[in-house]
Nucleic acid binder design. Structure first.
Lengths: 110, 110
DNA sequence: AATTAATACCTAAGTATCTTGGGTATTTGT
DNA sequence: ACAAATACCCAAGATACTTAGGTATTAATT
């Protein structure tokens, strides 16, 4: 996804949250959207994204709907009920991670 | 380090920042300190920590000083000059990561 | 006195997630 | 005509961890 190792483990959270907000998206669109939102600071590689989408689908968190636009197939992904629940869980874990990092990296002046 | 994949890539940053603040620490002490600071929410496993310390030493970011306390050897680690520089870099990367996550996960209501 | 927990170090095999570097095919812009 | 953008995909390798051990001393518990 990026040079930095930090982003490892955050891709699923990002994808699920985007789908949660947008309703449905296709892979290529997700890469564009993330790049736009973060002003190019975060670039999701397709080598990371597609396997992740397939994994989330296999886990029953996403469903697929194929549409053909301009003679090219698009695979739209959207959250299942379990996917919605998992999104909440992962967002809470991310918040907890950030809280813990703030505690560790900005210790209160005792 | 933890169940969650999120923490991958953050261990070096945590270790360097702790050493930056405390001056010198030994491995076991680091595991205790992190557990204390985070109120048990983050537990660093030794299987993760020791290889990381050795890696940081091999990269010239840490130096070692062995002391014997209660007949048991302690390996105190402390930052080299390069280690201090790298600490600044990694802390900035962590801040950038958190900023990007906030942008992605809390999009401003357009 | 014997056992367990705590202190203090370590490694190796396995797993997960990513990067890198490809591949296919159509459409749009130069 | 060619390059860039759109749109999907996979496989090999790298990295960072988890899990599950191992050694040895000291302190606490039964």
């Amino acid at each position: 996804m990026q040079k930095e190792q930090l982003y490892k483990g955050s891709l699923s959270t990002i994808v699920l949250k985007l789908l949660n907000d947008k309703g449905k998206m296709y892979g290529y669109q997700i890469t564009r959207e993330v790049e736009t939102i973060t002003a190019g600071k975060l670039v999701i590689t397709e080598g990371a994204l597609y396997p992740t989408l397939h994994k989330l689908e296999a886990k029953g968190l996403l469903s697929v709907e194929i549409e053909t636009v301009n003679n090219r197939p698009r695979k739209y992904y959207f959250l299942t009920e379990n996917g919605k629940k998992e999104t909440v869980t992962l967002l809470n874990e991310m918040k907890a991670f950030i809280r813990n990092m703030n505690v560790l990296l900005n210790p209160k002046p005792a």
